[in-house]
């Protein structure tokens, strides 16, 4: 049986196969039970370290996801708060696609002032949330908005 290198994580099947093989053809036949005990202890220790590593990774990813959700939530709140102060905005829809947050601003009065305010907001939001990508679209209110089916309503 080859010596197990440090840092090698064995699958459960490998672990039992190795222990069984060792038991069958090695230690038991030769009567060296101490050697078998050491080997099993070593394998168990490696399994424990592997489990600990995976648990730490899982915790790290959960924290990362939690922070991301919080960050995106604060971005949505920021946009909602700012947009609610813009006159003539009827509704806002958004969609996260291709690593970009698309926002559709639906206005009941499409004029220069609304255009400037909405695109100014896009500029400001991009500065405030530099880790996210944005694309704002301004559309007049019509009976059929022609938006993607999976948009969500923000306002």
């Amino acid at each position: 049986m080859e010596k197990i290198k440090d840092g090698t994580f064995l699958e459960h099947r490998d672990f039992w196969d190795e222990a069984e093989t060792e038991a069958s053809f090695g230690a038991i036949e030769s009567g060296n039970y101490e050697k078998l005990k050491d080997k099993i202890f070593l394998l168990l220790e490696k399994e424990r370290k592997k489990t600990q590593y995976l648990e730490e990774q899982n915790l790290y990813l959960r924290r990362l996801l939690s922070r991301r959700i919080e960050y995106v939530g604060s971005m949505l709140k920021f946009i909602k708060d700012c947009a609610s102060k813009i006159s003539n905005i009827d509704s806002i829809f958004f969609l996260h696609k291709n690593n970009t947050y698309f926002f559709w601003f639906i206005t009941n009065k499409f004029n220069e002032k609304v255009e400037n305010t909405v695109f100014s907001l896009e500029y400001d939001v991009s500065k405030e949330f530099v880790n996210l990508k944005f694309d704002f679209i301004l559309l007049p209110k019509t009976p059929n908005l022609n938006l993607p089916l999976d948009v969500q309503k923000l306002l």
Partner: peptide, 25 residues
Amino acid sequence: FFISYKSLKNLSEMARYQPDKWQNI
């Protein structure tokens, strides 16, 4: 500069992809 560019982009996309909207705008 960004607002000017974005306004042109928005209008041209509306003209190309939203035939029921651009004619009133």
